[in-house]
């Protein structure tokens, strides 16, 4: 039954299981901080057009895995992080919004567009891109507001806009909605899916670290389970829910089944 639904899902979207294009991959990545081993031979492929959730106990190295993907950290002992193309564009959304309090929402979103040796965009282009990114996340009326004038949810939306403005192909998210209340979180989850599916964004793949089993099942195509430190990938579980994902899919038997399956495996960790 599970496989039947999965095939149906795959044919609905333009994805064939056989020849899927890899956007980014980790091969045998190990890492330790000082004497503390954090990651133990993590291997993971991120395909085009997929939403991956990374699930695991807290402090197990999920965030570190994202930082490897971003190449903010380098793997040790023969590990490798490869991109589909050298100019693969990655975006990052942190657990905290990390907005500069002295910059307006618009200026915050423009910030990454104006960084770097070679100027990627003119001031005017950057402004236009930032405005359209803020429009995408529904903050078009708050361009000139400063972070302290925005609610927590709006701040995180601005952070997402900042990541989207640079036209990332792969978006990495580290518990982006972890600090928000349940209602806002649910709302933003669906907004995120909408952005991912939207032709207006360049987004192809999303990798999201989360603590929530339900969230991971509802949002993603595959759930990557990581073990406690030193963390490795223990399981990769496909989610047999149809896409596009919609509110109410939590009622489907496939949802419950996958959640149950994940719970069982979490217990075995």
């Amino acid at each position: 039954m599970t496989t039947a639904i999965r095939e149906q899902t795959d044919s609905a979207a333009v994805r064939s299981p056989g020849n899927r294009e890899i956007m980014l991959s980790l091969r045998d990545c190990s890492l330790s901080f000082g004497n503390v081993p954090v990651l133990n031979r993590v291997s993971l492929d991120v395909y085009r057009n997929e939403f991956i959730s990374i699930l695991g106990p807290s402090g197990c190295g999920k965030s570190t895995t994202l930082r490897l993907m971003l190449r903010l950290l380098s793997p040790e002992g023969g590990g490798e992080v490869t991109y589909a193309s050298p100019d693969l564009s990655l975006g990052m959304v942190f657990q905290k919004p990390v907005l500069m309090p002295w910059l307006s929402a618009l200026q915050n979103v423009m910030l990454p567009l104006e960084l770097g040796e070679k100027k990627k965009f003119s001031k005017k282009e950057a402004r236009e891109k930032a405005e359209s990114a803020l429009r995408l996340v529904g903050l078009q009326d708050f361009l000139n507001h400063y972070p302290h004038q925005l609610s927590g949810g709006m701040q995180q939306r601005a952070a997402i806009a900042r990541a989207l403005a640079a036209d990332p192909t792969v978006l990495l998210m580290d518990e982006p909605f972890g600090a928000l209340d349940e209602l806002t979180r649910e709302k933003l989850n669906f907004e995120l899916l909408r952005l991912w599916e939207s032709p207006e964004t360049s987004l192809s793949s999303i990798v999201m670290v989360t603590h929530s089993i339900q969230e991971s099942v509802l949002l993603s195509n595959r759930v990557v389970m990581m073990s406690p430190r030193p963390a490795g990938v223990t399981d990769i579980i496909p989610v047999p829910l149809p896409s596009p994902r919609e509110a109410g899919m939590e009622e489907l038997p496939e949802f419950h089944q996958t959640v149950k399956e994940l719970r069982k495996r979490v217990k075995h960790l």
Partner: peptide, 29 residues
């Protein structure tokens, strides 16, 4: 400076000069 803010600047290839003027100095005000 927040560690994540530094990571943000590094992700987008911010130079040392930019990290100073656009992050360190305003943070220290």
């Amino acid at each position: 400076i927040e560690y994540e803010a530094w990571e943000l600047f590094s992700t987008y290839k911010g130079t040392k000069r930019e990290i100073f003027w656009k992050l360190r100095l305003p943070t220290s005000l």
